[in-house]
Nucleic acid binder design. Structure first.
Lengths: 250, 250
DNA sequence: ATGGCTCATTGACCCTAGTCAATCCACCGG
DNA sequence: CCGGTGGATTGACTAGGGTCAATGAGCCAT
């Protein structure tokens, strides 16, 4: 079985349109419902606008749009990016199903980055003022939100270390294992998966040139660490990929 | 008047020991009290443990300590840093008076980084469970906290761009102007100030070698952009320092 | 099919910033 | 007073990864 077939196989889920509440959503164990009691889930359910669809390349919101809601990714994948004064794009994050995007706008009341679909995607919209009201009434939900934002800060700190101290090899390896772990969280394989983003987005996110990304993918394959076929990736030797052997030797 | 004298001059404030409540704190307009009505300030006041003192080099908390509180810096300055598996330090942030440190631990219930005093400092301790309870009752406080964390995320995104796309010159220039702006927020000069951190910390934070930081400080001075004398800095030509002229020319 | 896209790969060359090393300075303890 | 220690500066050399350029591969509209 080649990589493409293997990946297609694990994506046979019930059609999205059939899900009309968080109760029935396959992501409920990693998404917001995680934080509320079953009897309070209805309240959360009622404020969520479900199933907004985005085509590849479409924007969920743009920088300077007024901040109204945060979004739970239900299917597909998004990237967020900011524009510097001189017009160059900085990809700031990738968001996979079950993850929450849009929390950057809270302090300014408008978004400071843009969110764009990397492929056909659906999101659930959670109006933020409603969410705040509800959070006051449901302490676990408030805590979960603090927690989500805190985790985002933690991840940014890890990225800070990656960008400031690690080689290009380490950055790519880290991206691959991070994506793999997030796949696993959703119940998919952490060994074989499809990258939703282009080499350009990877390079931009990791502070590298596209050519460098390409070269490293090729070399990792030659070294037997991974198998790559366009955007499909299989991790062959996780220990060496994670460092023990790539960093300090071969 | 030399740099040292100029800086000493603007630090004549009332002694810290005299301040027994947020009401009397000179930082109340940029710190937590900002978010609550005067009549509710008492409630906030009551949960805050004030005036914990730290000597230079002392830790406020260490990675893996259980997460109990967040802290408002009252005087002095702190740095936060994380340790990678291979034992190298990564400075993740600097915290000046009026700023909140320690929000990284919420999601894990233990701190993932350590916080250390860069100089003699005092902090106000805000037990987090109390803060959560209070936030449920005071919507503006809840919002303020979401907002604070959101701002932290925004700043991390800006740093991401800095590390991934900008030259060493840009990074140093950005650090200087950021510190200057934060000084101004506290009512101090945004032109002339003392850096609380060593060249090593700056280098570590910005992903550079100490030697590079040193060289750039020297060159910026030769170019007439700044005046440096150890940790004392005066910004002489903000426009060129900020880019228009340094980036695209001279 | 054909042309025009964008994405990806590979090679050749170069430059920015890291490394190594020496020196200087301020501060501290005896 | 002197030696020790850590921070800062400067010089010489080097390498990791960026830039430029060419080519290939997949995809869509015509």
């Amino acid at each position: 079985m080649n990589i493409r077939m293997a990946i297609a196989h694990q994506h046979r889920e019930t059609p999205l349109a059939a899900r009309v509440s968080c109760n029935d959503c396959s992501l409920s164990q990693i998404c917001l419902p995680l934080a509320v009691d079953p009897e309070q889930l209805d309240e959360l359910d009622r404020i969520i606008r479900r199933g907004r669809a985005l085509k590849r390349g479409e924007h969920l919101y743009r920088a300077a749009d007024s901040f109204e809601a945060v979004y739970a990714v239900r299917s597909g994948a998004l990237k967020t990016y900011a524009m510097s004064e001189d017009g160059e794009e900085q990809v700031t994050g990738f968001y996979l199903p079950g993850e929450i995007v849009g929390m950057d706008g809270i302090s300014t009341a408008y978004h400071i980055s843009s969110a764009k679909a990397l492929e056909t995607s659906t999101v659930c919209e959670i109006p933020f003022t409603h969410l705040e009201t509800l959070s006051s009434r449901i302490p676990t939900l408030q805590h979960h939100f603090f927690s989500l934002m805190s985790r985002e800060i933690q991840e940014d700190r890890a990225l800070h270390m990656l960008l400031s101290k690690k080689s290009a090899d380490d950055r790519i390896a880290s991206l691959l294992t991070t994506i793999a772990a997030r796949q696993q969280r959703r119940g998919l394989s952490n060994r074989i998966f499809r990258l939703p983003m282009s080499r350009y987005d990877i390079a931009n996110y990791l502070g590298l040139a596209v050519e460098t990304v390409s070269r490293i993918f090729t070399r990792f394959q030659q070294q037997g660490l991974i198998r790559v076929e366009g955007r499909e990736v299989e991790i062959l030797d996780r220990p060496r990929l994670c460092g023990e052997g790539r960093l300090h030797a071969g």
